[in-house]
Amino acid sequence: DIEITTNGEEDAKRVIKELQKRNLEYHIEVHGNQWVIKVR
């Protein structure tokens, strides 16, 4: 598993777009303004 910590929603959406392009499965956890994306 890979864990990507982003700085808020805009940053997270940019990362998610890339993950979707590669058809990767991911899970999002929001901790305040930090979005942690866990990639399987």
Rank of each mutant, 00 (worst) to 15 (best):
D11Y: 07
K38T: 15
V30E: 03
I37V: 07
V39H: 01
L24Q: 04
R14D: 06
T5L: 13
I4V: 05
D1H: 13
R40A: 12
E10F: 08
I28G: 00
E25A: 10
Q34W: 08
Q20G: 05
E10V: 09
R40H: 15
L19V: 03
R14S: 06
L19N: 00
I2N: 04
E3I: 15
Y26W: 07
R14G: 06
N23H: 12
R40M: 14
T5F: 14
E18D: 08
D11T: 09
K38E: 04
K38A: 05
E3K: 09
L19Q: 01
Y26K: 00
V36P: 03
K21N: 10
H31F: 10
T6M: 12
V15W: 08
I37Y: 00
T5R: 15
K21M: 11
N23T: 03
W35K: 07
G8A: 08
N33S: 07
L24V: 11
A12G: 05
Q20I: 14
N7V: 11
L24A: 05
K21I: 09
K13H: 10
E25Q: 12
I28Y: 05
G8E: 07
Y26F: 13
L24H: 03
Q20R: 11
I16P: 00
T6N: 02
G8L: 07
W35C: 14
K38G: 02
I2H: 11
N33Y: 05
V36M: 02
V15R: 03
E25P: 07
I2P: 03
L19D: 00
V39M: 03
E3G: 03
Y26N: 00
R22A: 10
L24G: 02
L19I: 06
Q34Y: 10
I4N: 00
D1G: 12
E3S: 13
G8T: 15
E18R: 06
I28D: 00
R22S: 07
I2T: 07
R14V: 10
D1F: 15
R40C: 15
E18P: 00
R22F: 07
E18K: 04
T5M: 12
N7F: 14
E25M: 09
I28T: 03
W35G: 04
T6W: 02
K38L: 10
T6Y: 05
G32W: 02
V36K: 04
K13I: 13
H27F: 14
I2A: 05
K13W: 14
I4D: 00
E25W: 08
V15H: 04
L19H: 00
G8H: 10
K38H: 14
I37Q: 00
N7H: 12
A12H: 03
I37D: 03
A12L: 13
D11H: 12
K38Y: 09
Q20S: 06
R40E: 11
Q34H: 13
K21P: 01
I4W: 08
E10W: 09
I16M: 08
H31I: 14
N23I: 02
A12K: 03
R22W: 07
I2C: 14
E3F: 15
I16S: 02
K21Y: 07
N33D: 14
T5E: 06
K17M: 12
H31E: 06
Q20Y: 03
I28L: 08
E9V: 11
G8K: 08
E9Y: 14
Q34D: 15
T5H: 13
H27Q: 13
E25G: 07
W35Y: 08
G8M: 06
A12S: 03
G32S: 02
I16N: 00
D1S: 12
V15C: 11
L24N: 02
I37K: 01
R14K: 12
Y26I: 07
L19S: 01
I2E: 06
R40V: 15
N23R: 08
H31R: 14
K38F: 09
K38W: 03
I28M: 05
E18M: 11
K21T: 07
Y26V: 05
G8P: 02
E29Q: 08
K13V: 09
I28E: 01
L24K: 05
V30G: 02
H31S: 10
K17T: 09
E10C: 14
H27P: 00
G32R: 02
N33A: 05
I28N: 00
G8I: 08
R14C: 14
K38I: 15
L19P: 00
H27A: 12
V30P: 02
E9W: 15
A12V: 06
D1Q: 12
G32Q: 03
Q20P: 01
D11N: 11
N33W: 04
N7L: 12
V36A: 01
R40L: 15
E29Y: 06
Q34S: 08
K13D: 06
N23E: 07
H27R: 11
V15L: 11
G8F: 08
R22E: 04
W35N: 04
E29M: 06
E29G: 02
R14Y: 08
L19F: 03
V15T: 04
K21Q: 11
R22C: 15
V36N: 02
R22L: 14
I16D: 00
I28A: 03
G32L: 04
Q20H: 08
I4T: 02
H27C: 14
V39T: 03
G8D: 13
E9N: 04
A12N: 02
G8R: 11
N7W: 15
I28S: 01
E10A: 12
W35R: 06
R40S: 12
G32H: 03
V39C: 04
N33F: 05
D11W: 12
L24E: 03
I16G: 03
K13R: 14
E29L: 06
I4R: 02
E9Q: 08
I16A: 05
I16V: 08
L19C: 06
V36T: 04
N33V: 03
